[in-house]
Write a protein that binds this DNA or RNA. Structure first.
Lengths: 209, 209, 209, 209
DNA sequence: AATGAATGAGCTTTCATTCAT
DNA sequence: GATGAATGAAAGCTCATTCAT
């Protein structure tokens, strides 16, 4: 067991963290290499970043790459705890996981949305490796519910979008405007989503009869 | 002597249009004054923009101001056509209006999301004059439905977020990734949203009994 | 008669002149864009050069291009005044022309010698369009002399190098060391070259007999 | 206990060799310390050079110093083998020595020519210790030939320039353009030079009569 | 002796903005 | 009103050099 297991030099990691933070906050163009260096504890505008990365762009690419790698592993966790037997309990668990997930990964979503024009290839890759799989996961879960009779048999993919979107918007709006949308805190948001889902499921069952 | 309401010189308007287009597409920092001039048919990098606006920032501010002024007038249109008597018809109408609304105004949303750090005051103003009122309108409509017994009596404001979010995410995702989310076209999306709302309403009625 | 015959904007020309001067003196790498701007009367380090040229390299390329275009036209002038009937008079004329030619174009030779590694394509082009033709011209003149019996019949091309080289070295050495080589002024140099050529010619005539 | 004259650490020598090679090829400004380290087998951009030299400039100075020291010893070798009795044999020997000498030392000449503006003191020193003595040596040899009646009594110093220049230009041109000038190989060049010298000498003898 | 990391200085280039025409 | 030129202020990146290991 040699250097292989040694912690990566903290500077490199600090630069990646700074990049994620600042690129999401101000955008790629508005974040200078000096900003990144300063945020990572290096002397600003001295070019120290270039000991660790080939360019400013390379920092972005590696930061996003790390996210996607992580995302591929983590995405499904919440769904794997199912079923719990009680639909309301399940939905609450899912909602909590959804809020937590986007709260943790809002930065990546912002970056994608902001840098789409400059790095189309990156955004495309993120879509294929992170966004599409997430919606597919949600659609699969809905499909199962439909087959169990909890939800109306319908277009599971389209419904996944309808049902999952609020988590995205809720997080992004909060970051954009600096406060919960319409000042509705997370608990109220989660409760409303769960209520709606439960009503939807119940209506489906009734409607089928 | 011409009238005060004479059409503004087309160049000015073309610059505003260009600004909206390019700021939304590439962001404020990545759009140069030369880009704006070229897009507006002026000679690029010649400074012609400064005959019409004091600065690049002034163009952004005026473009957004025009949007908000317009938004204040238009927002409620769809809701004012209600009620139609048939809930499914009403919801379809609302969904169509929602898709059209965000399709038309996605640029403004993008700009707000992207320039929040640079122009916090602008974003705050947009929130108060355009975003909050839109959610309030939705909440008010839901409140009325609840009072009519079509929906479960619940937190109308929180539900408004849950119910309106999909339109935002659907549009932004489409712009970000260059195609409809999960390749679900607008008709499928609208149908799914309406179905969910109907099931939700039906479930509410049943659940109340 | 419109703008076509208008003098080219002086700034552009002044930048080209500055480039030739400074690139020859300090080399391309050691000459900053700010140096060029300052030498051309622009505000240094303000980027004014970029209104006229795409890059520092483009300035070099255009400056050399202008030289070669000019060289192609001028090279042969002195030889075209021949014959004068008197070999010593002819040789003196040629020597004077040679000294003047390299004195005027030493800068280009220096630049080629110095930037060969960085701009191999440029140097190659200069060789083909300016250097090779110059030697060919000398060789042709020698060939004619040989055919007239003034010089020994021999390898005219190789002899051209032997005979023309001194002008190059004399000029370059002077620029390099800041004074005439071995403190031999141009008149002594020219006289020595003519004497040697005359002796050579005479020896040839005798030798042939 | 090792002797004072122990071989210097090879790294130091390798750095000096690399410096000569790269400075001559790309120039001082275009050669980075990292290039030197890499060429000398050190880890590039790690600053290893500074264990052996105080600065990049110090490497240049020492490399040139070594050359001049060597030159002072070697310059005269060929001339010391004279006389051989046969003028053509002598001249051929001299020409061969000349070609070999400049072929070996072209790098130093290039460096002087290129770095004259940046290191005027260095160039001045080289001139005094290497260039002027070389021309003086040639002039002295010519003087002796004149006194022996082989050459016309004339300005030996000026003639030395005329007669020695071709070796310089031939070598430098070859390095600059990557091939023998006018594609005249060394044998043809040497033969032409010897022929010209012989004709010159013969013409002188005849002319004197 | 050698190396990885860090830093101050400087370079090429871009850009928002101004001004004379 | 529009344009070409000019300029101050960065910004990305390179590099000579230093330092701790």
């Amino acid at each position: 067991m040699t250097t292989a297991s040694a912690a990566p030099p903290p500077t490199r990691q600090r630069l990646l963290d700074a990049a994620l933070e600042l690129f999401a906050d101000r955008g790629f163009a508005d974040t200078t290499v000096g900003d990144l260096e300063a945020e990572a504890g290096l002397s600003p505008r001295a070019g120290g970043l270039y000991k660790h990365f080939a360019s400013k762009e390379a920092v972005l690419r590696e930061a996003l790459e790390r996210f996607v790698s992580g995302a591929e592993r983590v995405t499904g966790t919440a769904f794997e705890l199912m079923p719990l037997g009680d639909i309301r309990a399940e939905l609450t668990l899912i909602a909590r996981a959804g809020v937590a997930y986007f709260s943790a990964n809002g930065k990546f979503i912002r970056i994608m949305q902001q840098e789409r024009a400059r790095f189309p290839d990156l955004v495309k890759e993120m879509y294929e490796r992170a966004v599409a799989p997430a919606y597919a996961l949600g659609a699969a879960w809905l499909q199962r519910q439909m087959e169990s009779g909890f939800f109306p048999r319908a277009d599971a993919q389209a419904l996944a979008i309808v049902v999952m979107s609020p988590f995205v918007t809720y997080q992004i709006d909060q970051e954009t405007f600096g406060r919960p949308t319409a000042d509705v805190g997370p608990e109220r948001f989660i409760a409303a989503w769960v209520d709606a889902m439960v009503a939807c499921a119940r209506g489906a069952v009734q409607g089928d009869s």
